[in-house]
Each structure stands twice: as structure tokens, then as C-alpha cells.
Write a protein that binds this DNA or RNA. Structure first.
Length: 193
DNA sequence: CAATAGATCATCT
DNA sequence: GATGATCTATTGC
């Protein structure tokens, strides 16, 4: 694989907002499938009531309070899974929802897993689509993203990207907080920009 | 095009 | 028992 180094634990051990912005342009890899991250959202601790961690530690939210650089995968709407990456030092809640990637490897595999996607731009242009395309399920909940089959790497060809900031999608609480980050001009981001 | 309904279940009240 | 960090197909302009 012609990608750069795996991001280290320290990358994730920072405020969720910083991690969310800096993940744009990095490469999400699961097995043979890989994609450039083009859209993320930050979910914070404190008074961010939109975050799953806002009501404290439960069986489901446990990993959000755990060490950074791990995956938080949850099941939503009876049908879809969403991938988050835990940020902040251990003990502090905070994570980054990965909403969309630009497919760069294992594209045929992803297309097989997403027959409904007619165009490359629709393969992983949303949190539910992304997990389907990449084959990510709750089996990956708690997985360490600095080792194993699910990792994030530096891109082979790092490019500087411009970032658009918008409110987060699909939430009721804190619906106007500017915590969604999108690679400007990307055709692979979700549509509700 | 935009708007809407339906699918479907883990989690928390 | 209600709700939700969604997606797709379908309907109606």
C-alpha cells in the first residue's frame, strides 16, 4: 500500500475539534478498502447535548470516555452503523464522526457492498454509506486505530485542503453549533451541505 | 428537481 | 414505549 505512516496515539489525544479538522485528507483503511476522509463532525464533552456521551458513561458510551485513537461504532435507525474516532485524553469524552470518504482503493469491493450506489460519489458520501462500503460494523467497536486492520494513515500525496465549517447534520440539540468540517469543493461529501 | 414515507432495533425513559 | 449523529425509493411538481 502506497500510503504514509499510521497516525499515532498523540494525534488523537487532543481536543475533538482539532482532531476533526486534521482528519480531513487523511486515509481511512479497513482491509483492502481505503478512502480519503472528506467530511467529519466533532462531538464534545461538557454542554454538548447532541453527543451520546452527554448523559454519562453507559455500556454504549463507554469507549468515548476511554483512550483516544479507538473506534466508537454505534447502531442507528434500526439499520445503519456510524463510525466515530475517539479523541481527547483518556477519561474525557469527545469523538469525531467520520461522515464521508473519497474512495481510493478497493473500489470494486466497496461497489459490491453498496449496490445502490450508481456513482463513485455516492459510495461513501454519508456515515451509513461509509460503514457499509468499508465493511465496518459494531464488531469494530473499541478497535485500536493505531494497529490492526482498521487504521488511519497519512496520505501518499499530502495536499493542503481548504475547510468549510457548518452546523452538524441530523441532530436536535445544539443544532447550530459549527462543528461539521468538509473539504471545500469535494464531490464526495454528503449532499446536505 | 423537492418532499416524504418506510424500513427496523438498540438504547434509554 | 419513543426516539434516533440515516438511506432509499417513490411520489408529485
Amino acid at each position: 500500500m502506497a500510503f504514509g505512516k499510521i497516525l499515532k496515539r498523540e494525534f488523537y489525544e487532543r481536543p475533538a475539534v482539532d482532531v476533526a479538522k486534521d482528519l480531513l485528507g487523511k486515509v481511512l483503511i479497513h482491509g483492502a478498502a481505503a478512502g480519503l476522509i472528506v467530511e467529519t463532525e466533532a462531538y464534545l464533552g461538557g454542554d454538548d447535548l447532541a453527543a451520546h456521551s452527554a448523559r454519562g458513561i453507559t455500556n454504549r458510551t463507554r469507549v468515548i470516555f476511554g483512550p483516544p485513537g479507538h473506534a466508537y461504532v454505534y447502531f442507528i435507525y434500526g439499520m445503519y452503523e456510524c463510525l466515530n474516532i475517539v479523541a481527547e485524553p483518556e477519561g474525557q469524552p469527545g469523538c469525531v464522526l467520520v461522515r464521508a470518504v473519497e474512495p481510493v482503493a478497493g473500489i470494486e469491493l466497496m461497489q459490491r457492498r453498496r449496490p445502490a450506489a450508481r456513482r463513485l460519489e455516492d459510495l461513501a458520501s454519508g456515515p451509513g454509506k461509509l460503514t457499509l462500503a468499508m465493511g465496518i460494523t459494531r464488531a469494530q467497536n473499541g478497535a485500536d486505530l493505531t494497529r490492526g486492520t482498521l487504521v488511519v494513515r497519512e496520505p501518499a500525496d499530502p495536499r493542503r485542503v481548504e475547510i468549510d465549517v457548518t452546523p452538524r447534520i441530523g441532530i436536535r440539540e445544539c443544532a447550530d453549533w459549527p462543528l461539521r468540517f468538509v473539504v471545500r469543493g469535494s464531490r464526495f461529501a454528503s449532499k446536505a451541505t
